[in-house]
Structures are given as C-alpha cells and as structure tokens.
Amino acid sequence: NKASVVANQLIPINTALTLIMMKAEVVTPMGIPAEEIPKLVGMQVNRAVPLGTTLMPDMVKNYE
C-alpha cells in the first residue's frame, strides 16, 4: 500500500503548506501520494483541513 499525505495539524484556509504540516500515512481512500510532499510545499489549501485529514487533490490550489 502506498502512503498518502495527511494533515499533521489543523491547516487554516489559504495557508501555504510547509513540511511540518504534513505526514505520510497509509489511508483509505488514498489521497495525494506521499512522494508529492516536496511539490506541495508552498502551495495553498483552498479550505480548512482538520488534523488527521487526508489531503485530496481538490483541497490544494493549482495542484495537478
């Protein structure tokens, strides 16, 4: 099973992601793959992301 990106803390709306906000975890359903973490740094979330939430592509602005 591949790990996904999971919020390590509450991430407020429009916050630019940093490494300490994210962790890799095997979850179902899968979200953004953990190997994308370096690419996510500096990208903004378009909603508040609660602690423990799996990051999905539609939660990150301009994620492709």
Rank of each mutant, 00 (worst) to 15 (best):
P57E: 09
G42C: 13
L17W: 00
L19F: 04
R47A: 12
I13H: 03
T53L: 14
A3H: 06
T53D: 09
A3D: 15
Y63F: 06
A3G: 06
G52S: 04
A16K: 08
A34P: 09
G42E: 10
T54Q: 04
M30E: 15
M21H: 10
L55I: 10
N14Q: 06
V5F: 01
S4Y: 07
V45K: 00
V60L: 03
A16E: 09
T54N: 02
V60Q: 00
K39H: 12
M30V: 12
L55W: 00
K61T: 12
A3Y: 04
I32S: 01
E35Q: 03
V60W: 03
N62E: 12
I37N: 02
Q44R: 06
A7Y: 00
V41A: 11
V41D: 10
P33N: 07
T18R: 05
T54F: 02
E35N: 04
L19C: 15
N14E: 08
L55G: 00
M30D: 15
V45D: 01
V45E: 01
R47D: 13
T54H: 03
I32Q: 01
T15F: 06
N1H: 08
N62L: 08
K61H: 06
E64T: 12
V45R: 01
P38E: 05
M43V: 13
T54I: 04
T28E: 15
R47K: 12
V6I: 14
V49D: 01
I13T: 08
E64M: 09
G42I: 01
E25Y: 03
I20L: 12
A34E: 09
A3E: 14
V6S: 05
A24T: 14
K39S: 04
M43D: 09
A48P: 05
L19G: 08
V45A: 06
N8Q: 05
E35T: 06
T54A: 08
V27H: 03
M22H: 00
P33V: 13
P38W: 04
A7T: 13
N8E: 09
N62R: 09
G52M: 05
A24L: 04
R47H: 14
M59S: 11
G42Q: 14
E64C: 15
P38I: 06
P38G: 11
E64R: 10
I11P: 00
Y63M: 04
N14K: 05
G52E: 06
A16Q: 08
L19P: 11
A48N: 08
G42F: 06
A48H: 09
V5M: 02
L55Y: 01
V5K: 00
P38D: 04
V26N: 04
A3L: 11
T18K: 12
L19H: 10
V26R: 02
K61F: 08
V45P: 05
L55A: 00
M59Y: 10
M56P: 01
E36A: 08
N62H: 14
G42S: 14
L55T: 00
M43Q: 10
A48I: 07
K61M: 05
P50N: 12
E36W: 12
M43H: 10
V6N: 04
Q9D: 06
T53S: 14
T28A: 14
V6M: 14
L17R: 00
V27T: 07
M59H: 09
M21L: 10
Q9E: 14
A16L: 07
P29T: 14
I20Y: 08
G31D: 00
A24D: 13
L10W: 11
V45W: 00
L51D: 12
R47Q: 08
L10A: 13
G31N: 01
T53E: 09
A24S: 10
L19Q: 14
A34T: 06
K2L: 15
V6L: 13
I37C: 07
I32D: 00
L40S: 01
G31F: 02
Y63R: 03
A16R: 13
G42N: 09
K39E: 03
A7E: 01
M43G: 09
K23E: 05
I32K: 00
M43K: 12
M30C: 15
I11L: 10
K39N: 06
Q9L: 06
N8V: 09
V5R: 00
I11K: 00
M30H: 15
A24V: 09
A34K: 04
A24Y: 12
N14I: 05
T53P: 00
Q9K: 07
Q9R: 14
N1P: 15
I32N: 01
P50S: 10
E25V: 12
I32Y: 03
I11Q: 00
L10R: 10
T53A: 11
A16G: 04
N1R: 02
Q9Y: 11
Q44Y: 12
I11N: 00
L17E: 01
V49E: 01
T28W: 02
S4F: 03
Q44S: 09
L51Y: 06
V49F: 02
G52P: 01
L55C: 02
T15I: 06
V6W: 03
L40G: 00
M21D: 11
N1W: 05
N8A: 09
L17V: 07
T54K: 03
T53C: 07
K61L: 10
K2V: 15
N62S: 14
E64D: 13
G42K: 07
P33R: 05
V27M: 07
L40W: 02
V45H: 00
P29W: 15
M56A: 07
K23D: 11
N1A: 15
K61E: 12
K61G: 12
A3F: 04
P29F: 03
T28R: 02
E25G: 09
L17G: 00
D58I: 09
